[in-house]
């Protein structure tokens, strides 16, 4: 897999994100003037290749959900370009974006809040077809039943309402809803983090199977490395609105370069048998995420980094590759 990713040319890029920034203005005072900016996403660039899964990991407040929403144009980027299949979509008007939403779909985090409770399962799953296509009622019904079976829902559940389902089943409804119009890219915004651990694996396996069957590309957002390990080909680690490390899964788990990534890996609980005992660089992350309104100068992670030195507070590290082109890290330790 690693080789495959490396050899992919630019024409295989499904999504290409260039220097995306999303600043939320903070208004204050009587005149409601903008007094500061919350830098949710601050200069992020990456590519997603056709058929792969890029995992995006970061703690809450790192801007990963905002990034997903900006790519889908649910939020307008402050700066930067987004290319989807080679087309620039970041400057399009909302009306023009609507046609791109056939090819980009999203699965949301909250299985309870992301489904309209007043709509039946059939209505929910068929809604994308109703909005995006001119299929007849009968055709919509047939496609809905087909996709429901694919995601492991029973066709007789069509007329039920979301409140009659468990969290895992609701997430299956969300997945069916996202996949029914055959999108190319599915942005999964922490799709399993609200589920029980036993259900998490089920849903992840389902998503992996569906990816193979429909040759989907996933952008998989999660807040810990253990979940994305299962499903990702490559992983990007975000910290305070920036990508601090991006690498193929193996490289990241075996040879994490950024102190933050090392810290995240160290925080995954493992069963310590003799076989699995791994030598991990024990970097403990302490303290809280600094405010994205007023991020630290230089490297954003320096306030919590055990290895921070003078240069870190002065110069912002670029995302560069110390070893090979596919393992990038933004840290002064490697330059």
């Amino acid at each position: 897999m690693t080789n495959l990713v490396q050899n992919k040319g630019t024409e295989d890029k499904l999504l290409d994100v260039h220097h995306i920034k999303k600043y939320f203005p903070i208004k204050g005072g009587i005149l409601k003037r903008t007094v500061a900016h919350l830098k949710a996403v601050d200069d992020v660039s990456f590519s997603v290749f056709k058929g792969e899964t890029l995992g995006i990991v970061g703690e809450s407040g790192s801007g990963k959900s905002t990034l997903g929403r900006v790519i889908l144009r649910l939020l307008d980027p402050t700066e930067g370009e987004i290319y989807f299949n080679g087309d620039e979509i970041s400057k399009l008007k909302q009306r023009q974006v609507r046609s791109y939403r056939r090819d980009m779909q999203m699965v949301f985090q909250d299985p309870f809040g992301s489904l309209n409770s007043k709509m039946s399962v059939a209505e929910l799953i068929e809604e994308p077809l109703l909005v995006q296509t001119n299929l007849s009622r009968q055709e919509r019904k047939e496609r809905a039943i087909k996709i429901m079976e694919k995601v492991g829902l029973r066709a007789d559940d069509r007329l039920k309402y979301p409140h009659e389902f468990s969290g895992g089943q609701r997430q299956r409804i969300s997945i069916a809803r996202a996949l029914i119009i055959n999108p190319q890219l599915v942005i999964c915004d922490e799709p399993v983090s609200a589920l029980d651990v036993s259900i998490q694996a089920q849903v992840l396996n389902l998503m992996k199977d569906l990816q193979d069957e429909f040759s989907l590309t996933y952008l998989f957002i999660a807040h810990d490395l253990s979940v994305v390990k299962h499903i990702s080909d490559r992983i990007a680690v975000m910290y305070l609105g920036r990508i601090v490390e991006i690498a193929p899964k193996r490289a990241l788990y075996d040879n994490a370069l950024h102190p933050y990534t090392q810290g995240l890996l160290a925080s995954i609980p493992i069963i310590d048998t003799d076989d699995t005992k791994q030598e991990r660089k024990k970097t403990r992350i302490t303290g809280d995420l600094p405010s994205p309104v007023n991020p630290p100068t230089g490297c954003p992670f320096r306030t919590r980094c055990p290895l921070a030195h003078e240069r870190c507070s002065v110069e912002r590290p670029e995302l560069k590759s110390p070893e090979n082109d596919e393992h990038l890290v933004a840290c002064h330790l490697y330059t």
Binding site: R69, L72, L74, V97, R98, S99, R101, R102, Q105, M106, F108, Q109, D110, G113, S114, L115, N116, S117, K118, M119, E127, P128, V131, Q132, S174, R177, I181
Partner: peptide, 26 residues
């Protein structure tokens, strides 16, 4: 602020559809 409204927008629903199909029933 609810996620399902974002979801409706994500599938490309129009403002009118969101108001009549998602807001008013709720």
């Amino acid at each position: 602020e609810q996620e399902f409204v974002l979801g409706a927008r994500a599938i490309g629903a129009s403002d009118l559809r969101i108001i009549f199909k998602h807001f008013i029933p709720n």
